[in-house]
Design a protein around this nucleic acid. Sequence first.
DNA 1: GCGACAG
DNA 2: ATCTTGTCGC
Length: 218
Amino acid sequence: MCFGNLTPQLASIQYSLADKVTESDDFRRLERVGGVDISFSVDNKAVAAAVVLELKGLEVIETKTLETELFFPYIPGFLGIREVEPSLSVLNTLKHDFDVLMVNGHGIMHPRGFGLASHVGVLRDCPTIGVAKRLIDERYINVATQRHHAEDQFLISKNGCVIGAFFRGKYVSVGHRISLKTALNVVERTSIFKTPEPIRQAHLLATETFKNILEERG
DNA sequence: GCGACAG
DNA sequence: ATCTTGTCGC
C-alpha cells in the first residue's frame, strides 16, 4: 500500500550495495549467457522467465518460467526492489549455469549506481549486464553527452565517470563483475535484432507463458 | 504551469 | 509493462 514511504531507506540500501559492485571481468569462461525478464499485469500477477543460451550460435539450451506476484510498486529508480526477488527465484530453477547474465533494466547507470541488473548480480553474486531502452532520468546525464545523442553509439558519464553507453539503440551498463567493454561485446555478439537475444528470448517466454496462464483460466 | 523518470 | 489494428516492407 504505502511502500512509497520506504524509498529513503531503500535508497540507502542501494547506496550501500552499490559499493559491492565490481567492474572488472570476473569469470573464467564466456560461453553461456543467461537472460531474465518478467511479464506482469495491472494486478501485479506475473511470470518471470529465464533462459540460457550458447554465445556461439545463440542456441537456447534451457528455459524456465515462474508464476509469481510482484509486491512492490513500480517507482522509477526502484525497479530492482520490485523485480529482484522473482528474478533470482526463476534463475535458481535453471539446471544449466551461465557465465554472464543479461538483465532487462539498468546496471550502474542509475541514480544511485544500483539498478535492477546490479541487484541481481550482487545478490546472486554473478556477472550481469544491464540493458535498457530508455534512461531513468536524463538529468543524470552530462550535458556534453546529450549533444552527441544524434550519434548511434557513445559513452555516457556522470560526474566525469563513465557509467554506461548508448549502443545500437539500447542503454548498456555494468550490472556486476564485468567491464563495460566486455558487456558491450556480449551485447553485440548476442544481437540479431534490436534487443539482444538473452533478454528478447526471456521476454517472449515470459509474455507467452503469462498469456497462456491467463486464458487457461478465463 | 510544464519540463523525455528502467519495467 | 500491458491493452490492440492496421500497415509497411523484405
